[in-house]
Write a protein that binds this DNA or RNA. Structure first.
Lengths: 165, 165
DNA sequence: TAAGATTGAGATGTCAATCTTT
DNA sequence: AAAGATTGACATCTCAATCTTA
């Protein structure tokens, strides 16, 4: 993911410094391991995966009626619209949310959290939060948390610009 | 992924504070978006995905002979051994590495980077490094980089303990 | 025609079961 | 029997093509 290949002469993009490289390798490992670990906890304890939880959780926070257009929801959870569409279909089949065309403009689809979906989020949250604490938050110093928060915010801002699908 | 569900009374695990929550949502978004973005660049420019690149890259750094047991390599790249096995099989079929049983102990499999594999890493690295800079490193302050590095390192240490498969 | 959303085919990841060597 | 590695079945993600409404 990072790392210069042994050594080569000609091409010189700005290689990573030692410090950058070791930081990046750590991040890369985190990218590989964190999702699996959080997936495993949720799957085991609640029967849903991380992305499904994230979708339900974000939807549960939309005011005032836990309802949201697919394209807005995509903005809240990241990833592609087709991925979201697949996941939402699965969640609908399991009764955690339902979809309705937007009365205002039939091109939009509204995703609406059901009571069962809300119950699922409420039931799954404690275990998930505990895992997030254990694997990430509680191992950070206040300064690190601040830094991470800033990184995250920036990421969220950049995301606005993107388009996929 | 984080976030308390509206509000509930009884169960009180240590919920995330406002600050923790927004930091975590940012990280969660990063977990969703970064791999796709890096995957896309590598796939487009070099025909391999992020995890494949990571495997080849880490193998290219093993001294002195770019050779490594599967189980050691798994430690270098994270993830499960079966995932690694699948990826290595694909990379072998494409000629980027080969596998041989360890002469010392037939239970081990050695993964050996071929010249073609080395050439692939060398060719793919500049574009990948540029993407890593653009999407991560260059948008961080020195403090943030330090923090991220610390998180990563810790992750690497914890990983040692894990066992999967 | 364009925007939003969905679908289907193919690639990849996961989990449990299996195989090989010790 | 145990360790290391692989396999196969199934779930999920991605990309391109399609469908619907405006």
């Amino acid at each position: 993911m990072a790392d210069r290949p042994a050594r080569t002469a000609a091409e010189s993009p700005r290689w990573l410094t030692e410090k950058e490289q070791s930081a990046w390798i750590g991040v890369a490992l985190m990218l590989v391991e964190l999702p699996s670990a959080l997936d495993a906890q949720l799957e085991r304890d609640s029967g849903i995966n991380l992305f499904e939880y994230f979708v339900l959780s974000r939807l549960s926070m939309t005011e005032p009626d836990r309802t949201c257009r697919m394209s807005e929801l995509r903005g809240l959870v990241g990833g592609s619209l087709s991925r979201l569409s697949n996941v939402v279909k699965r969640l609908e089949q399991r009764g955690f949310l339902r979809r309705e065309p937007d009365p205002t403009d039939g091109r939009y689809t509204m995703a609406i959290l059901t009571d069962a979906g809300m119950a699922m989020v409420v039931a799954a949250a404690p275990g998930h939060v505990a895992a997030v604490r254990e694997l990430v938050i509680d191992s950070l110093t206040p300064d690190q948390l601040t830094a991470l928060g800033a990184i995250g915010e920036q990421r969220m801002r950049e995301r606005q610009a993107d388009q996929r699908d």
